[in-house]
């Protein structure tokens, strides 16, 4: 992702008395995500706030009450004066075991789509997914870029318990459940990685703006990685995206 020179028209909204919501045009777009990300890094250097970014939004949350007008004035100046963004997004490889034992909906999914499991795995592992947001659960990624042939409305009734690491498809999105939770997505596999660990120095290595690829692994590799994760020696692969 290169920073762009484009200046979007932004909406600044006083969201509570200690937060400012900044909104870009309402669409799913790599250019917008990249613009938000560049701005976020700039803001982080200058403003005493934490930030949450998602799709077309950047929320800046301050510890105390703020003077909305003054702060927006500063932020607007900051937006106009952006420089080249040096922090490249990371590209992560997440190993996934695709089979019916861990992917409870794999067979039904393929039957409904009239597609072989091999084709499903090929389609799911060939795409590069962009992380558009992290939320719902600590470390839960909203991924964009799912092949249209794999779109599938979510289950009408969510399951009360989806196992940790489950890889699913819901609507036009795909993702990994970082912990056991209720969930309505179609489960097609399991990623034995620890996407969130509160006891790590960096609890979630992945940031909004990064990219993800899934790679198909065997049952033996799944077992091995599970052991490596438990003993703390597994490192998720990350390749700096080539600019």
């Amino acid at each position: 992702m290169h920073p762009t020179e484009s200046n979007f028209s932004l909406r600044f909204f006083p969201y509570s008395d200690s937060a400012i919501l900044i909104e870009w045009p309402e669409e799913i777009s790599e250019a917008i995500l990249q613009d938000i990300r560049a701005f976020k890094f700039k803001v982080a250097k200058q403003q005493p706030c934490e930030s949450v970014m998602a799709y077309r939004s950047l929320l800046l949350i301050y510890k105390n009450k703020i003077d909305f007008k003054e702060t927006v004035k500063t932020l607007k100046q900051l937006y106009q004066s952006r420089e080249f963004l040096n922090i490249k997004p990371k590209q992560w490889k997440i190993p996934v075991l695709y089979n019916h034992k861990v992917g409870w909906d794999l067979e039904a999914f393929c039957a409904q789509k009239q597609m072989s499991q091999t084709d499903l795995i090929r389609l799911h592992t060939s795409a590069v997914y962009r992380v558009f947001a992290i939320g719902f659960l600590p470390g839960f990624m909203y991924l964009g870029g799912l092949e249209q042939k794999l779109w599938m409305p979510r289950h009408s009734e969510p399951r009360p318990k989806v196992p940790k690491g489950s890889v699913g498809i819901g609507g036009q999105q795909t993702g990994v459940y970082p912990q056991e939770s209720p969930g309505g997505w179609h489960l097609i596999g399991n990623a034995p990685v620890q996407l969130f660990d509160a006891h790590r120095k960096k609890p979630c290595p992945i940031s909004v703006g990064d990219t993800i690829r899934f790679s198909s692994i065997s049952e033996e590799e799944h077992e091995l990685i599970t052991i490596q994760v438990k003993s703390g020696i597994f490192q998720m692969e990350n390749l700096q995206e080539h600019a």
């Binding site: 934490e50 949450v52 940031s207």
Partner: peptide, 9 residues
């Protein structure tokens, strides 16, 4: 818990 909302905490 402040400072971790960007990773969903």
């Amino acid at each position: 818990r402040f400072g971790y909302r960007d990773i969903g905490v």
